[in-house]
Write a protein that binds this DNA or RNA. Structure first.
Length: 481
RNA sequence: GCACGGAUGGCAGAGUAGCUAUGCAAGGGAUUGCAGAUCCCUGGACCCGGGUGCAAAUCCCGGUCCGUGCUCCA
């Protein structure tokens, strides 16, 4: 099977062919750590986590780099409001990032470079751009001059210089900057009084917003690399600026072979933003749902589509994921520690094929989830019947661990699943005697058609977390989810 | 305004020409004191208008609507 990926630059799905056979270099724009991570960050991290997982799964050796822009205007403003060092702000939020992303089962990148650790390379790159006449020095910093490479304009957005000139014309006068043209962008910003700064040939200052990614991707992945990713909101101007910087500096194009962009998150159909007040940090979300359920929710749509975060989708995710976990734990328990391939089980082989072709088609996690759901459904019916053949159960376990676990990352470890299961069984045995005696009382109430008493007892059982189910073969009970 | 993306049943979302997924929800039935769980069954969609095809959700043209970007943003 062939992997195809949607490339923003060519605006089409292209067959993926890495620069070096069997190896992939991938750079994804990470966060500016000025506040705790929100669910949009989580979506980005998970989207690229899954891309990397799939690339590895299909045999590529992947070098995955994701950066932190740990110096920028907003970090400075938080630090001055709080009266603490800017690095304290950045570090605090980076710690938060790792904590929440770990809990969401995001496999760590090979490296997380930071701007503040890449200053010499950034300065070198800017100097190079000045030497090559692509940049000019002013009182307030260094700027990239768009007119020195006009043909590169609109590579990702399809906009032309004229369009943008019309759209934003005249803005430069208001910025008070030394830009020659409003479309030029800062490579280096001179330090204002009291701002963090580094020494450069152009005086004390700090890097502009876009240059760091050009410098860090060059440093870690080289002069050409395979995939560059990030949220769609970074397409313009950030990624276009990177194209200018990297390609003008290195003198060849393309530096990036494939541009991949994940979609944004909407809340109840509206863009998530602080001003609307519909803003969810990851921790907010985790107060309502478990980490793997959040992960499930965020891969429920293909990564390029917007995800609408609303109560219906949250509830759906909770029940779907719960069903998955339930069946997995039960199958795991019934497999009695056996391990068996699923190769001989026809429906599993077919489901696996469909997942593979779905994932090969621009990492379509939605298709993958559909297959997981249908396998779970089938497994649940097996468990319900008496076909709990340990060997067969272990085939299902194996399948789920491969696709729901390894590929999608929505399965807990077997130890965790078993321990949850056993906790439940333990709880069951702890309350069994009491439940049984209540059920006896209820039974006699029912025999005498005393429905009031019967329902009262059922309510009492509900309160201690027991679900009562009357069936043709008598009354069963289970611990509620 | 310009650019990019999207428009499929109640909802989420597959599907690039021929048989239209899948999940949830809904309706009917079995079971049932009621509820729940389970099982069986069912209906239901391709934004609009043209065009090309024997055949179009799928290709082409025009339009409408929505989202995002054009300013810091994953």
């Amino acid at each position: 099977m062939t992997l195809r990926v949607y490339d923003t630059r060519s605006r089409s799905k292209r067959i993926f062919k890495p620069l070096v056979d069997g190896q992939v270099g991938i750079y994804a724009c990470g966060i500016t750590p000025y506040s705790p991570s929100h669910i949009g960050h989580a979506r980005q991290a998970i989207a690229f986590d899954i891309i990397v997982r799939w690339l590895r799964k299909t045999g590529f050796k992947v070098n995955y780099i994701s950066n932190f822009t740990d110096i920028d205007d907003k970090i400075i403003s938080v630090s001055s409001v709080e009266g603490v060092d800017f690095l304290e702000v950045a570090n605090r939020n980076i710690d938060d990032y790792f904590q929440v992303m770990d809990s969401l089962n995001v496999i760590r990148a090979n490296s997380y470079p930071r701007v503040t650790e890449t200053i010499p390379e950034i300065i070198e790159m800017i100097q190079d751009l000045i030497d090559k006449k692509h940049a000019y020095v002013t009182d307030d910093g260094v700027y990239f001059e768009i007119d020195t490479a006009p043909e590169k304009y609109g590579q990702l957005t399809g906009q032309t210089l004229d369009m943008v000139r019309k759209g934003a014309g005249g803005r430069v006068e208001n910025t008070g900057s030394g830009k020659r043209d409003h479309r030029d962008f800062a490579l280096w910003k001179s330090a204002k009084e009291g701002e963090p700064n580094w020494i450069s040939p152009w005086g004390k200052g700090r890097p502009g917003w876009h240059i760091e990614c050009s410098a860090m991707s060059l440093k870690h992945l080289g002069e050409r690399f395979d995939i560059h990713g990030g949220g769609t909101d970074l397409v313009f101007p950030h990624h276009e600026a990177e194209i200018f910087q990297s390609e003008c500096c290195l003198g060849h194009e393309p530096v990036v072979q494939y541009w991949l962009h994940n979609g944004m998150i909407n809340i109840d159909g509206e863009k998530m933003s602080k001003s609307v007040g519909n803003f969810w940090t990851v921790r907010d979300a985790l107060e309502k749902i478990e980490p793997l359920v959040l992960r499930y929710a965020l891969i429920n749509a293909p990564y390029r589509q917007p995800v609408d975060f609303n109560s219906v989708m949250i509830d759906d995710s909770i029940s779907h994921h719960g069903r998955l976990l339930n069946s997995y734990s039960k199958a795991l328990h019934s497999s009695e520690g056996l391990r068996n391939d699923y190769i001989g089980v026809e429906n599993l082989v077919e489901a696996a094929d469909r997942i593979r072709s779905g994932m090969d088609d621009d990492f379509n996690t939605r298709i993958a989830l559909v297959e997981v759901q249908s396998v779970v459904k089938y497994l649940a019916s097996l468990i319900d019947s008496d076909e709990k053949n340990p060997l067969l159960m272990s085939s299902y376990v194996q399948w789920l661990e491969e696709f729901a676990g390894e590929v999608l990352g929505i399965l807990p470890t077997p130890e965790e699943a078993i321990s949850r299961y056993e906790d439940k069984m333990l709880r069951r045995s702890e309350i069994a005697a009491r439940v049984e005696s209540l059920l006896e009382m209820r039974k006699s109430a029912r025999v005498s058609k005393n429905w009031v008493e019967s329902d009262r007892i059922r309510d009492e059982l509900t309160e201690i977390g027991v679900v009562v189910e009357d069936g043709p073969e008598g009354t069963k009970w289970r611990i509620s989810e």
